[in-house]
């Protein structure tokens, strides 16, 4: 048996392709991000080692703080909307008495399977200052609240974040519904028999039992928000001005538009560390005791 399962040729044949491809395409570039952040580098030559100068420059760059702030706003908006709405929908629909459950589930999830380009183009049309769906709805309701949502520097980042929240809400809903359905019904019924109201029973019993899923949703929403890129690339190009820049967008512009590859990787390196800290913090702070049921 040992010889059978320890067949060296088979092990190499099965294992090496994945290890090689993963190392070259995923791990090597990740390490390069940190290494290159120490260089003044235009992507063509070898570059010159400049120590932590890029980081000093980054922390003095006003664009960095704009991008950082926008990443945090973006993450907060999508976390609150996706997890908040997702929770209400999942807990309500987990009640077997609700009619049209299958239809509702499909409705919530459909935007998840669309490409980010289609979603952004669709929302560009919806936000359109003259003909967009949203302004048309206001018009039909007789409210004179015409807005060009994306050209206003104060609202643009929120408008872009809402698009992401709309697209991925269904994903969080599906995760939360799966978690809610996996909780034995006796738990909730016991709480109700004790006289707790339904929402209170959910608050005290169901939601704490779903803490592992909440952790996952939080990590996903917040790191996703901090990394936001495609939405601004397609919808605003970082504008108006620099009002919708995020760190990933800043990195992209530095490298591919200005040719400052070294400085671009510095923003990326900062982002990786930021995301690791957030992931670690969420895992430590949210529901530290693992609940077994």
């Amino acid at each position: 048996m040992n010889k059978f399962l320890g067949n060296k040729t088979a092990i190499l044949l099965f294992t090496l392709p994945t290890i090689l491809l993963f190392s070259v395409i995923v791990m090597w570039p990740t390490l390069q991000v940190f290494y290159r952040s120490l260089y003044d580098w235009n992507g063509l030559t070898e570059g010159t080692f400049i120590g932590l100068d890029n980081y000093k420059r980054l922390f003095e760059d006003r664009l960095f703080y704009t991008s950082l702030k926008n990443g945090i706003i973006f993450a907060a908006v999508i976390a609150v909307l996706q997890i908040g709405i997702g929770t209400v929908l999942a807990l309500t629909i987990s009640n077997k008495m609700v009619r049209g459950r299958k239809f509702l589930r499909i409705s919530y999830f459909i935007p998840v399977v669309l490409s980010v380009t289609v979603v952004c183009q669709l929302w560009l049309a919806m936000y359109n200052g003259e003909y967009g769906l949203i302004n048309k709805v206001f018009e039909a309701l007789g409210i004179s609240y015409r807005q060009d949502w994306l050209s206003n520097g104060d609202t643009a980042i929120y408008a872009v974040a809402v698009v992401n929240a709309w697209q991925n809400m269904g994903y969080h809903f599906a995760l939360l519904l799966a978690a809610a359905n996996s909780i034995p019904e006796q738990y909730l019924e016991a709480a109700k028999i004790d006289g707790a109201e339904k929402w209170k029973a959910h608050w005290k019993v169901t939601i704490p039992l779903m803490s592992e899923t909440y952790k996952f949703c939080l990590v996903l929403a917040i790191t996703g928000g901090l990394n936001a890129f495609a939405n601004m690339q397609i919808m605003t190009g970082g504008g108006p001005g620099t009002d919708t820049y995020t760190l990933t967008y800043m990195m992209y512009r530095s490298a591919f538009r200005v040719g400052e590859y070294g400085y671009g990787t510095t923003a990326a390196a900062f982002l990786i560390i930021e995301c690791l800290i957030v992931t670690f913090a969420i895992n430590r702070l949210v529901a530290r005791e693992r609940i077994v049921y």
């Binding site: 390069q32 990394n227 990195m251 990787t265 990786i272």
Partner: peptide
């Protein structure tokens, strides 16, 4: 475990070295 680490690497972040590669 080594291969699973990749789940924590968002592709946007490694765009620059990947493009050079």
């Amino acid at each position: 475990m080594y291969v699973v680490i990749g789940m924590f690497v968002p592709v946007q972040v490694v765009m620059i070295p990947l493009a050079i590669l």
